[in-house]
């Protein structure tokens, strides 16, 4: 169980829970990011924030602070180390 904000680029998993009281999470739910949904952290912006995440065939950007309430069950076969020669 990891907050989305701590995922490394390339890591993927399933969304476990989010906080429906927050406007960000409401927006993400409207886009189809619901518990059980597979998602992937595609990359971080060059300055480290925001993040680009992929789910349901779309790529969406959200800020690090906004990604805290999203709890992800990281898939076991994910790369744990950040690949060296890849952004």
């Amino acid at each position: 169980m990891t907050p989305l904000s701590q995922l490394l680029p390339g890591q993927f998993g399933k969304l476990v829970s989010l906080n429906p009281d927050r406007a960000v999470d409401q927006r993400l739910m409207a886009l189809g990011l619901l518990p059980g949904m597979a998602l992937k952290l595609v990359r971080r912006a060059p300055l480290g924030d925001p993040l680009a995440i992929e789910f349901g065939g779309q790529v969406v950007s959200l800020r690090l602070a906004e990604a805290e309430s999203l709890i992800v069950d990281v898939a076991a076969d994910c790369p744990v180390q950040r690949p060296k020669n890849n952004s």
């Binding site: 927050r22 406007a23 886009l31 790529v59 950007s61 959200l62 800020r63 906004e66």
Partner: peptide
């Protein structure tokens, strides 16, 4: 005004 979350589709 309430700030909007910066959720942006790429």
């Amino acid at each position: 005004v309430k700030p909007q979350p910066f959720v942006l589709e790429l």
